[in-house]
Nucleic acid binder design. Structure first.
Lengths: 318, 318
DNA sequence: TGGCTTTACGGTTTTCGTAATCATT
DNA sequence: AATGATTACGAAAACCGTAAAGCCA
């Protein structure tokens, strides 16, 4: 008699996700179950453990100190469980959902390969890429996503950021405008409106600091959160815009956009992409997906032509 | 959908015990459940893992290679589960059964203190001491017991044996015989029958090799597995016997037995006690009990008088 | 009020023990 | 025959979702 307490792996998984997401509702969503069922699981676990794991005094449930100490052990157990499954069925047995943030650029250049590789190596993993330009890193920190493929860094010590690749930014305009501008300088920026990304997008920040550093001023006419929209508006000839080189490559080859040379002393800094994940996220499944995404993203966005020269295939019209 | 496989801690505990005991029946007994229920748990676990964990071709189920790889992970998970419980309720929360082998001598000198200490530190641990003189180490190797407090060593590499204490053996006889013998030598052994423990008991082995080494012969008249019985027969004056010093102390103080001096060149070797446990038994609960038993046994059997001298409180009668 | 958590309740699924069956020595 | 593992089945317990109720901003 009097054997092991009846702690369940399901309970521990509920604890894990409730803690990392900071909310029972989100955890229930992630675990594909009802808030009510999840709440009962947590309550039951607390009764088994004999101490409250969450502080419900606020509007959202916050993890207690005892809970904090337990979470790492719970995560280790869940990982061991996955390892057991792998020992029996092979690595292909990894099963579950991996949610990650990715910029539009990376989505265009690398997502297809990521998804394909994951499907091949781990057919039972379900991917949930969230394509966005904003808050990708914050989503990782909040636990919303398992990792992010995004430019820029964060100073948060809870985050690991691993360098992936450097992306060139290019000023582009429609072919109609091209003969009127020819090159980016103070005068051109004065004359033609700039179609930019949202203020919080990394490329916009970069553009602003570049402009400030060079004493340039420009008028912004649109701030969309979608690079596709910015590109479309630029194609329509409404203004010039600063976009990632790999992103505009396709439109340049079709002749819808032209790349504007920059005067040498106005060289635009480049955008550094990183793979971001929470240090405490050492679960097997997201780790496996990260390992797949890392080399693909590092490689796919490299300039495909030689020696970092600007792409030399502008169809010389006009 | 498609989340973690439904592996259960109960299933893993069933695997753990079935493997270490090498039998579903014994494991079911230890887990206080039916063979049938345990069999179903294992079957279910195998279906989750996707590979057979036991080979049922023989009469008893034997662990497969896959099973072997999984067991250590399962044990780690069970330990983490205990640690979680401890993090919530404190070390006192350790709950379960610890079964160990112990010799009669250690049972008399130390068991009470072991049980008392365990009850004080871990009120929910149930102890099952198996008092016996035989096969204590084999029981550990088979997984029947979690550890053993026993003399002698084993060469089995699966076993860890840690030195505890050295026990002196004394020749004793009844007070009626004492004036006729006075000292142990070849003549005395020729004349008086020896009441000994079973042939497989450590003290008997020691006695035989001692006799051989010294070219002595004696006639054995009883071979009991109970030192209590040997002592009783000796008290009754049926012969002389060789018993552990701490064991006969009580009977010496009551005057029921007398200790026979040994001639210096016939010094009896001493009996070395060890704490034996299986290397792969790293579960928290038996470890906690081992840590308690170790110092108690190492201390309690030490000679309580100074300088290894024979105890000097023989009531000098007749 | 609105988002989030807990409680109440009914129906489904899982789990367990008894007893019978199968297999190996 | 005897020991040990599996199957059948009925009862008990656990689990989940819907719906209603509390609770904090």
């Amino acid at each position: 008699m009097g054997n092991r307490a009846n702690i369940t792996l399901k309970q521990l998984e509920a604890l894990y996700w409730s803690a990392t997401l900071g909310s029972f509702a989100l955890a229930a969503d992630r675990l594909a179950m009802t808030q009510s069922a999840l709440s009962k699981r947590i309550l039951e676990l607390e009764s088994e453990i004999g101490a409250p794991l969450f502080d419900r005094s606020g509007s959202r449930a916050r993890v207690t100190e005892v809970g904090e100490r337990i979470i790492s052990k719970a995560a280790a157990m869940l990982n061991l469980c996955d390892e057991i499954l792998i020992a029996g069925r092979g690595a292909q047995a990894l099963r579950g959902v991996c949610r990650f943030g990715i910029t539009q650029l990376m989505a265009i250049t690398s997502l297809q390969e990521i998804v394909g590789t994951v499907r091949r190596l781990y057919p039972d993993i379900v991917l949930e890429p969230r394509v966005d330009a904003l808050d990708l890193i914050e989503d990782v920190l909040r636990g919303e996503t398992d990792f992010a493929l995004a430019p820029g860094t964060s100073l948060d010590p809870a985050l690991t950021s691993e360098y992936l690749t450097r992306i060139e930014l290019s000023w582009v305009c429609s072919p109609q405008l091209f003969p009127l501008i020819k090159t980016i300088n103070a005068e051109a920026l004065q004359r033609y409106p700039v179609i930019s990304m949202s203020a919080r997008a990394a490329s916009t920040n970069l553009m602003n600091s570049w402009a400030t550093a060079n004493g340039l001023k420009f008028k912004e006419i649109v701030a969309s959160n979608s690079p596709e929209a910015v590109a479309a508006l630029t194609v329509a000839g409404l203004g010039i815009s600063l976009l990632a080189r790999p992103f505009v490559e396709r439109l340049v080859t079709t002749g819808e956009l032209r790349i504007l040379p920059t005067e040498p002393d106005l060289m635009m800094p480049e955008l550094d992409y990183f793979l971001h994940w929470r240090k405490d996220n050492d679960r097997l499944l997201p780790k496996a997906v990260r390992e797949i995404a890392r080399p693909i993203c590092a490689r796919a966005a490299q300039p495909k032509t030689d020696a970092g020269q600007p792409i030399a295939l502008l169809p010389s019209d006009g």
